[in-house]
């Protein structure tokens, strides 16, 4: 570990985050993406998108949940190199970037005070968003199942369920 191996070839990967395409040089340099970097690390430390939170960093708590091609994934359990060519959506990418309007799910979380400390909230919202993408009218049990991987220690679960079901009910039939 006294010296890092020098890479001379430049591999580049691209991924799209919240609609913006990013190209990264793979490597161990200060501004490069290492093959060992997780997606959570790249989002937070390289792109500065700190809305994605890291709690356990081992795939157990769901705090780092983001969308990959519309589906909920744990960004701490994915290497950035695995995400090449994918569409990533983080909490910062919800809503309408043109108008600045927030997603109705976010508004529903505000209306129901569906959080306490708020640390796990971005991950919960992204899991719920993935559910509503797939199932716009879920039952309470379906919401519970979809969020079963999201840790919330303050116990905001009851308000969260109200918020998600309320948002689903107010959703546009698409």
């Amino acid at each position: 570990m006294t010296s890092m191996p020098e890479k001379t070839t430049h591999s580049i990967i691209t991924l799209t985050v919240n609609g913006d395409e990013h190209a990264f040089i793979l490597g161990e340099g200060a501004h490069q993406v290492s093959p060992s970097h997780t997606l959570a690390h790249t989002l937070r430390e390289t792109l500065g998108l700190t809305g994605t939170k890291i709690s356990c960093d081992r795939g157990a708590c769901g705090c780092c949940t983001v969308l990959m091609d519309g589906k909920a994934v744990l960004s701490c359990m994915l290497l950035t190199v695995e995400c090449a060519g994918k569409q990533i959506t983080t909490i910062e990418g919800l809503g309408d970037p043109a108008t600045g309007a927030i997603d109705r799910l976010q508004q529903s979380f505000i209306d129901h005070t569906a959080f306490q400390c708020g640390f796990c909230t971005p991950g919960i919202i992204m899991s719920a968003k993935a559910l509503l993408n797939q199932n716009p009218s879920p039952t309470r049990e379906e919401v519970q199942a979809a969020l079963a991987g999201n840790f919330c220690r303050c116990i905001s679960h009851y308000h969260v369920l109200d918020a998600v079901l309320d948002a689903a009910q107010k959703g546009d039939p698409e």
């Binding site: 937070r44 998108l49 700190t50 809305g51 994605t52 939170k53 890291i54 983080t90 909490i91 910062e92 919800l94 809503g95 927030i102 976010q106 508004q107 979380f109 505000i110 209306d111 005070t113 959080f115 708020g118 640390f119 909230t121 971005p122 919202i125």
Partner: peptide, 21 residues
């Protein structure tokens, strides 16, 4: 009365900055 938390918008948009951020 129920009023939105003053920090609600920051929390639901991921703009709340915790120390690690």
């Amino acid at each position: 009365k129920s009023t939105p938390r003053k920090d609600a918008l920051d929390i639901v948009t991921g703009r709340t900055k915790f120390i690690a951020d």
